[in-house]
């Protein structure tokens, strides 16, 4: 935890701090992640078949097998590593094509990023099939402010004759992009460096956000955004959440209700952020 541990008997801070680590630690605890021994929390997201587990294994030194299939990592894998005197906890989220459907995998991944608010979300993408992978990348960027794109399988892309301009990509996405080939270990030191930079706030992301919205619902959308901002100031992108709610994502609405209960339990009722 970044903040000092709170000794027993001391009241938690009562001012609005929905984004502070006390609040987040409680949320993470609800999601089943214990943050007691760790400085930072990293989430690993990505499409199936992008070598996400290879990246996870390379970072943690674990040997977790996930086959050439979508949805293999049904249970969340966790590991940890140390880099430059800091301890990082890393959570491997299920491989999904999207965060929009209502499959259990996608819900796990979305809720984790949205409510767990990891210090860094690393999205692993297949460089040889970038367009498809960007679909998920853009969705992740909608729900978090701190992300890194790990452009994996660069060796395969090269073999297929593709050249990927990672600087251009970083400019367009507004987050750091690291080309890697996790199988051979290429690019992993750089990935670690960038993760630590983003986690420590040395690099600030300005993630690409969707601007396009259907004119017919603009009014309803704006109204909803105001309400969500009031009730959930911790959410990085109220507009996205509003779009999803208008899109009929009842699971998200349910998750928000759950999240709210947890938030109120940590931040006392006197907390203006929740009241």
């Amino acid at each position: 935890m970044k903040a000092e541990p709170i000794p027993a008997g001391v009241t938690p801070p009562t001012e609005a701090c929905a984004t502070c680590s006390v609040y987040r630690a409680a949320n993470l605890k609800k999601l089943g992640v214990n943050m007691e021994q760790w400085d930072y929390m990293i989430a690993l997201a990505g499409n199936p078949n992008t070598g996400k587990s290879t990246v996870f294994n390379a970072l943690t030194g674990l040997r977790q097998h996930t086959g050439n299939w979508p949805g293999k990592t049904v249970t969340r894998a966790e590991g940890g590593f140390a880099y430059a005197d800091k301890r990082y906890k890393i959570v491997d989220l299920p491989g999904t094509y999207s965060l929009l459907s209502t499959s259990p995998d996608e819900e796990i991944a979305r809720d984790f990023i949205l409510f767990g608010q990891p210090d860094v979300t690393v999205v692993v993408a297949d460089a040889s099939r970038l367009e498809r992978n960007l679909n998920l990348v853009l969705q992740v960027l909608e729900i978090t402010d701190r992300a890194v794109l790990c452009l994996n399988l660069m060796d395969e892309a090269r073999r297929h004759g593709a050249v990927v301009d990672d600087r251009q990509l970083a400019r367009d996405l507004g987050v750091p992009v690291v080309p890697t080939s996790a199988r051979s270990g290429e690019g992993l030191p750089e990935l670690l460096k960038v993760i630590s930079d983003v986690a420590a706030g040395r690099v600030v992301c300005r993630p690409h956000r969707l601007t396009d919205e259907p004119p017919a619902i603009r009014h309803a959308l704006n109204e909803l955004v105001t309400k969500i901002r009031q009730m959930h100031p911790e959410l990085p992108n109220a507009r996205w959440v509003a779009m999803r709610l208008l899109g009929g994502d009842e699971n998200l609405a349910e998750a928000l209700r759950r999240g709210e209960i947890g938030g109120a339990a940590v931040n006392r009722p006197s907390n203006p952020a929740v009241a």
Binding site: Y97, L100, S101, T102, S103, N135
Partner: peptide, 11 residues
């Protein structure tokens, strides 16, 4: 339903 969302997600 689920089928429509899946096809959209697959591109």
């Amino acid at each position: 339903g689920a089928e429509r969302r899946r096809l959209l997600d697959l591109g």
